[in-house]
Design a binder for these strands. Structure first.
Lengths: 358, 358
DNA sequence: TTGAAAGCGCTAACAC
DNA sequence: GTGTTAGCGCTTTCAA
């Protein structure tokens, strides 16, 4: 409430005894029953205008805020959605987290953040907590396509939407990007630019994201009748959030491949792998965009500055659709599960064109 | 429970009727009272070994998980901490969020994520929700040093720890970095490298972070007897998470200053301002590290790759201390408020040394 | 349209 | 050391 010219009184909602007002206090002050107050405030059923006004006045007078804990227990559901992702430090997931949180808030839900590091044990533990908190819904990037713990959540009939990755054990709504097409497009661009020994740096195998991106790579090469050389497929199996480990791993493995296999292009299949991969290229004495072409999945803050060609995912749209699907399920939609696939955008910059062609 | 060679049964915890087991069910099965079950599981008071074993067996048999909603209501507190930051898309905050969430989880707390965009109205709304959810504690980056809504939380005696920024209206524990010293160090390095017209790009004025960093700049110049030229201080007042707006704003404003004032160095005072600032430099026809030196606060994924000298904050330590202080307060510590200041680390790379000195 | 009453599942006094 | 009892604050039957 505004007290005087711009001064806002942020009351504490406490009475003289330091107690929060309850629905009973409001009811007493408005001369009605707690049930009526509940109905008036939740809007579930009609309350006559006079009574309604009295209730609102009492609410204002007492600075009443409903106690969510009580409401939660009674309804056996909290107004929260669980967001279980691999790691918020990954800019892709950060963008998703941001968009999910914004939309959840707009619909009255809080967002509980969980970072699984793609660790099935952690994932399971988070899910346990989330379920025991009776979250209204779940947005998850499964650590493994056979993510049995997520299947359990689905069976416990908590609405679940998978983002970025699929699961095969249960059917859940899924929102992701056309990984095969995205990488395929990158392969096309590189081949058309004259590259023929294209290496690819891939994250953990257990996610559908990683496997699909490799499939896109194989399919792409096949389309151009270029044989797949398994030695050019660089697997990093570092898990989750350890930036340094990821960096070192990508640098080491790709560095070796560059030395031994002499690729003329590299596709980096996710954001966290980019720094180490670029370092590997530099330390091998190559120059990105001059004697080795590079295309990377995901956008980093400085991708544009360094002229890195990227396959960019529409994070806002992905999160938007995920929340929309989740809200529909939470509203009781029991239809068959849906999958929404976005086409990633190839943002062409200097790194994907070789200037030092012979 | 492991059923057979590696197969794990993730039971749903439902009985034949599809109902979750309650503490009463466990009590009945173990032949004790619900209170004893509660005590055994929470460990608050001694329970004789035999009974304890029976209880644990019953818990396992029924696949019982305590209902947190009930526990929350009874205790008038949820096992949740509120994390109210400006924007998770900012890598600094993402790193803090990650570390906070990890530690919170280790101590049995869930983390609710809120992005305020440094908007006082949003901040207030989030705080209202968080308080009505009876969070056990709050970790906040106040949008404004006169953040009355946070003061209200402090008065409602919810433990609060401020991170990255101070508030002046209330006393709350605070964990941050020595901004003045950090920027001062950067100024020293630039001046010692021969720069004398040092521009600085600063974020919103209302946060203590921004003002302190400018103070560090002024103090630094004064130490070297270089007069402060106000025209070299570039203020961006874009708020919160709009990456594009920040980019454009920083680029436009710094671009103008480079054209008009011909600085030989730029200090960029936070991560989100870096891309636009670097773009401004490039588009003005200058080259970072050749004819214009650059030092930037905060680390980005590609800072090392582009050779950007940075003033790096120890995000894990910051978050670690914030959580530690918060846990102490939640445990009832009512001592005077504390402030923990970390020294940022100057990571010297190519951008801060001018190679094209006459 | 409104009220009375029950109860969500747990925990904390207080007894024994 | 364990049981009994009461009640956290709300929502939702059910009845009037």
């Amino acid at each position: 409430m505004v007290v005087a010219d711009g001064v806002i009184d942020f009351g504490t909602g406490l009475d003289e005894a330091g107690q929060m007002a309850t629905i009973k206090d409001v009811a007493a002050r408005a001369g009605v029953s707690p049930a009526t107050v509940s109905r008036a405030l939740s809007g579930v059923s009609y309350v006559s205008p006079g009574i309604d006004a009295r209730i609102r006045k009492a609410v204002a007078d007492l600075d009443y805020t409903p106690n969510r804990l009580a409401s939660n227990l009674r309804r056996q559901s909290s107004m929260t959605i669980g967001l279980l992702i691999s790691d918020v430090k990954n800019p892709f997931f950060a963008a998703v987290a941001r968009a999910v949180e914004d939309l959840a808030t707009q619909h009255g839900y809080s967002t509980v953040l969980c970072n699984s590091d793609d660790d099935l044990v952690k994932e399971r533990r988070y899910l346990d907590v989330l379920l025991s908190e009776r979250v209204a819904g779940l947005i998850v990037t499964p650590a493994d396509e056979h993510a049995s713990s997520i299947a359990a959540a689905v069976e416990a009939s908590v609405p679940v939407v998978c983002v970025d990755r699929r699961i095969v054990d249960a059917d859940a709504d899924t929102v992701l990007v056309d990984n095969i097409g995205g990488v395929g497009h990158a392969v096309d661009m590189l081949v058309n630019g004259g590259c023929s020994r294209i290496a690819i740096v891939v994250g953990r195998e257990q996610t559908t994201t990683a496997t699909e991106r490799v499939t896109g790579y194989r399919d792409g090469l096949r389309r151009h009748s270029i044989p797949v050389d398994e030695a050019l497929i660089v697997h990093s199996d570092v898990r989750g959030g350890d930036t340094t480990a990821l960096y070192d791993d990508a640098e080491g493995r790709l560095g070796a491949v560059i030395r031994d296999e002499n690729p003329d292009a590299v596709i980096i299949t996710n954001g966290p792998l980019i720094p180490g991969s670029l370092a590997a290229i530099t330390r091998s004495g190559r120059t990105v965009g001059t004697d080795i072409a590079v295309i990377a999945f995901d956008e980093l803050a400085l991708s544009e500055y360094v002229g890195l060609t990227t396959i960019t995912q529409p994070t806002d749209d992905i999160a938007g659709q995920a929340v929309r699907l989740l809200l529909e399920r939470m509203a009781g939609d029991a239809g068959p599960s849906r999958e929404i696939v976005f086409r990633p955008k190839l943002v062409e910059r200097a790194s994907s064109v070789l200037t030092a062609r012979p």
